[in-house]
């Protein structure tokens, strides 16, 4: 009996607790509803209030202006970046141009620094080695009597090489002499073999339109893959200045020899006259 009355008491307590919770939930729902209504009222008031909507419109306009300013700044930034890249590129080009001009100035200065024929030849060779970067090359001059070209100076060839004489118009070298136009191709891979009659570059040595010889380049230095822009400028410079320097130094050497001979004759005549 006692057990039954205890169980009943407990169920009554549980029921009371559930009822209390039910009341509490209803109270919360009512409060929620009230707050929702209040929010809706406030929202309606804000849109209908002219001061608030004016303020909102102003803020909206300001946001738009700021967005436009941001876009403008981004556009300018991109422009400045593009200009920066352009300046950097121009700087590199100017540096390259400076380098080229220095090479051309030095080459020209050295070529005209002497009237000694052997020294001029040596300078031409120095330019071809140091400024162009050639490993194997030769200088050929035209023999006006036989009308063919012979090697005058060379660098880098095998010791037992026999240099052929080349007639005007014959092969690559002869054609360069005939036309007066430079010829160049770029070194083809590691399997490239030197063939004297097929140089990588053949530069005519010209005084006005007269070709007096050629420079043949057969191989570039190992660190140099191909001819560069400044090389073509140097070829043009060599075509004219090296030719003039070689020609004038040769004339000077010849005139020096002739002068010595004439001086010898004069001395002889003077001595003979005094004896007579």
């Amino acid at each position: 009996m006692d057990d039954h009355s205890d169980l009943f008491k407990k169920s009554q307590e549980f029921l009371q607790m559930v009822n209390q919770q039910k009341d509490f939930i209803q109270d919360v729902l009512k409060e929620n509803e009230r707050l929702r209504f209040q929010i809706a009222g406030l929202q309606g008031k804000s849109t209908s209030d002219p001061l608030v909507s004016q303020e909102m419109a102003l803020l909206k306009k300001k946001v738009e202006q700021l967005e436009a300013q941001k876009a403008e700044i981004e556009r300018r930034f991109q422009n400045v970046e593009a200009e920066n890249k352009d300046f950097a590129q121009r700087y590199i080009e100017i540096e390259e141009q400076n380098n080229n001009l220095a090479n051309l100035y030095v080459a020209s200065y050295q070529l005209h620094s002497t009237l000694d024929f052997q020294e001029v030849l040596h300078i031409v060779m120095e330019i071809v080695i140091n400024l162009i970067g050639a490993e194997i090359f030769s200088i050929m001059l035209l023999d006006e009597k036989t009308n063919d070209l012979g090697v005058l100076a060379h660098e880098g060839y095998d010791e037992d090489v026999k240099f052929p004489r080349v007639h005007i118009g014959e092969g690559v070298i002869g054609s360069v002499v005939k036309t007066g136009e430079s010829y160049y191709i770029n070194q083809a891979g590691s399997g490239y073999k030197v063939d004297f009659l097929h140089p990588l570059a053949c530069i005519p040595l010209k005084i006005k339109e007269n070709v007096i010889g050629v420079i043949n380049i057969h191989k570039l230095l190992v660190q140099k893959d191909a001819f560069t822009a400044v090389d073509y400028e140097l070829f043009s410079l060599l075509a004219a200045h090296a030719a003039t320097a070689i020609f004038s130094s040769r004339l000077y050497s010849q005139s020096e020899r002739k002068l010595t001979t004439i001086q010898g004759f004069l001395d002889l005549l003077t001595t003979s006259g005094q004896r007579g």
Partner: peptide, 12 residues
């Protein structure tokens, strides 16, 4: 030993 190179390096 090359006057050309001496001048070019000096120039730089």
């Amino acid at each position: 030993d090359s006057p050309t190179m001496r001048q070019l390096i000096s120039f730089s």
